[in-house]
């Protein structure tokens, strides 16, 4: 069972308290009704499925109930870091060489 650090509670909690909520950093268009089919497709359907680092949303549903973002390695299943919703995608990951 994974331990996940909730950036709001500021502690690691067991994964049973959390729920995955899909890929992160996909903002809902402000004028969604005016989106072209292609743009709506990109926003709603297209998701990355990387082998390696993925940015995804999690919710501490059985804890503080907040949504937050996480960086996870899909190969090792390790959480690289977590950060609050609304914060920018981290430019540099901890432990990364560059």
């Amino acid at each position: 069972m994974l331990l996940i650090r909730c950036p709001y509670c500021e502690e690691e909690r067991p994964e049973l308290e959390f729920r995955n909520a899909g890929e992160a950093h996909i903002a809902r268009p402000t004028n969604i009704a005016g989106e072209s089919d292609d743009d709506f497709e990109k926003f709603f359907f297209i998701r990355s499925n990387p082998k390696g680092v993925i940015y995804e949303r999690w919710r501490h549903i059985h804890g503080c109930a907040r949504f937050f973002n996480a960086v996870r390695d899909t190969v090792t299943d390790k959480f690289v870091m977590t950060y609050k919703a609304g914060e920018p995608k981290p430019a540099k990951l901890p432990g990364a060489s560059k």
């Binding site: 729920r19 909520a21 949303r57 919710r59 549903i61 949504f67 919703a85 609304g86």
Partner: peptide, 13 residues
């Protein structure tokens, strides 16, 4: 409830 919280917290904060 989950759906509402999702939008409130992340799209319409």
């Amino acid at each position: 409830m989950h759906h509402m919280e999702d939008y409130l917290q992340t799209e319409f904060p």
